[in-house]
């Protein structure tokens, strides 16, 4: 956790190295949940660390740095999503009734099934669900990060959760 790092007096290189060691994996995983694409996710997180390096003299604090990195990854993922290839966009907007998420037979299959189901949510629903359930953010934090009202967060969370349950069907009920 950020609070375990003592970055007082650290220069930009050292701060980035320590934050990388502590948070690179978690941030890439967050970006993968938002973007589906691991290479794109690593690009987004790399950009966030480079931006952090540039402004380290103003942050100089592990908690602030972590908040900055997380927000940069969320913003970067949203930006990258906007410019996804048409094929990807089309896949997400296919009528949900036509989508079948197969019942997984093992842990890896289950992970793929959830990732696949996430792809069929709207971008906003997926963002809200990921921030809520992976980062354990409050509605207020999510509203702030996404620039939408807390009421809108609640709505997207509700609809997204319902859609995810429908996509996972029987499997969700047996979980």
């Amino acid at each position: 956790m950020a609070e375990d790092l003592d970055l007082r007096g650290a220069d930009a290189d050292s701060a980035v190295e320590q934050l990388y060691a502590a948070h690179w994996r978690r941030l890439v995983r967050l970006a993968v949940l938002l973007l589906h694409d691991q290479t794109a996710a690593e690009d987004v997180v790399q950009d966030a660390f480079i931006a952090l390096h540039r402004r380290w003299s103003r942050l100089r604090d592990a908690d602030r740095a972590m908040a900055y990195l997380t927000q940069a990854v969320v913003n970067g993922s949203r930006s990258a999503l906007r410019h996804r290839v048409v094929v990807e966009r089309h896949a997400r907007t296919a009528p949900r009734a036509e989508v079948v998420v197969e019942t997984p037979v093992d842990a890896a299959g289950r992970r793929d099934a959830v990732r696949d189901a996430l792809r069929h949510l709207s971008d906003r629903q997926r963002e809200v669900l990921v921030l809520r359930h992976y980062l354990d953010w409050s509605e207020a934090q999510i509203a702030d990060a996404l620039g939408i009202s807390p009421g809108a967060v609640k709505t997207h969370a509700h609809r997204g959760g319902q859609a995810l349950r429908e996509l996972l069907g029987d499997w969700w009920d047996r979980e």
Binding site: V16, V28, R29, Q38, E42, I50, A107, R111, V114, Y134
Partner: peptide, 21 residues
Amino acid sequence: FSQVAQGVDPGDRLEELLAEA
């Protein structure tokens, strides 16, 4: 979500990003 995230194995980019920074 935690299980999905655990299934992701991020590559190492420390040297690359430090060089660019």
